[in-house]
């Protein structure tokens, strides 16, 4: 059972209150009909699936109800940080340097 920081509640809370919601920063195209079949396929199905740092979405479904984003390591399962939906993708290296 992970502990997850909800950026809206500003609290670190147990995993059962949350639901995973797939990779982050995949915006629905503004005009899907303008996309080629290949572009639409990539939007629908192609995901990065990295070993290590993963930008992903969670929802505090049994809490404030908000979707938010997280950076998590897929090997250690550890969260590096969480941030609100709509905020730009943080630069993890810059964050690490700042921390050091």
């Amino acid at each position: 059972m992970l502990l997850i920081h909800c950026p809206y509640c500003d609290e670190t809370l147990p995993e059962p209150e949350f639901a995973y919601a797939g990779e982050a920063h995949i915006a629905r195209p503004a005009d899907p009909m303008a996309l080629t079949d290949e572009e639409w396929r990539d939007f629908l199905f192609i995901r990065s699936n990295p070993r290590g740092t993963h930008y992903e979405r969670w929802r505090h479904v049994h809490g404030c109800g908000r979707f938010f984003n997280a950076i998590r390591d897929t090997v250690s399962d550890k969260f590096a940080m969480t941030y609100r939906a709509g905020e730009p993708r943080p630069n993890l290296d810059a964050l690490k340097e700042a921390a050091e």
Binding site: A19, A21, A27, R28, R57, R59, V61, F67, A85, G86
Partner: peptide, 13 residues
Amino acid sequence: LNMMEDYLQTEWP
């Protein structure tokens, strides 16, 4: 409801 919330919150806020 979850699917609707997802679109509402993240695509059409």
